[in-house]
């Protein structure tokens, strides 16, 4: 049993009963990390909700500031990429190497489209006078009565989510390369998938709580 070298010796064997949730430690660790990261977003979202409740100025109508159909398109793209990610995980598990590769590539493409849309949205709003510290005096947004809390919450929430999408993309690209080189087991694809689904789920909350409500 020790012929596998250090890995075999150091790997402790599960023996305490049934593995909790039938998950390996790698997957358990990913899940717990996702919970932690979700709470980070909860902190930011709660902060935003708190300040919005406490705001003296009226909250602007989101449909006047943003183009909601465009945001809905972004949401659609991201959710579709979650679906293709699901197919990639299933294919990887079933050992369909080629399909998993294709699906991963489509997912990455979807993520890139989302980031592109976000960049467009940011530049559009900045052009209209949105700044981190509030609407630029005399700009279109200032005329609409956008309070500083609105823009700062917008940039911090979407920016923080965007950075998560970016790191998700990096993880996916690494996974795709390693998968193509047959260097990662199907669990690697599954864990990258977990993170990607989480990033998408966070967007659903941001979309609902910031753009719609």
């Amino acid at each position: 049993m020790h012929d596998g070298g250090q890995a075999a010796v150091m790997e402790a064997h599960w023996g305490g009963g049934a593995a909790p949730f039938g998950a390996t430690w790698q997957k358990t660790m990913m899940w717990i990390f996702i919970v932690t990261d979700a709470l980070l977003f909860s902190g930011l979202l709660c902060g935003y909700a708190f300040l919005r409740q406490a705001a003296i100025q009226p909250w602007p109508k989101q449909s006047e500031v943003f183009s909601i159909p465009f945001i809905a398109l972004m949401t659609f793209i991201l959710i579709t990429s979650s679906m293709t990610m699901g197919s990639a995980v299933t294919a990887a598990r079933l050992g369909d190497h080629k399909k998993a590769r294709t699906m991963l590539a489509i997912t990455i493409f979807g993520g890139l489209c989302f980031l592109g849309c976000q960049a467009y949205e940011w530049s559009h709003l900045i052009h209209e006078g949105a700044r981190l510290t509030g609407a630029l005096p005399g700009s279109t947004l200032a005329a609409e009565g956008v309070p500083p809390v609105f823009t700062q919450a917008f940039f911090v929430l979407t920016g923080f989510h965007g950075s998560h999408v970016l790191s998700g993309l990096i993880i996916l690209i690494v996974t795709l390369v390693r998968w193509s080189m047959r260097k990662t087991p199907s669990q690697g694809v599954e864990m990258a998938g977990l993170y990607w689904h989480f990033v998408d789920l966070v967007w659903v909350f941001i979309f609902t709580l910031f753009y719609l409500l």
């Binding site: 932690t36 709470l39 980070l40 902190g43 902060g47 510290t133 809390v149 700062q152």
Partner: peptide, 25 residues
Amino acid sequence: GLLAFPALVAACIMLVFDRHYGTSF
């Protein structure tokens, strides 16, 4: 620790923006 510290991270992110980039969280 895993459930509680993210709240402080969120607060620290906002604090950094307040201190260095002029926001008013």
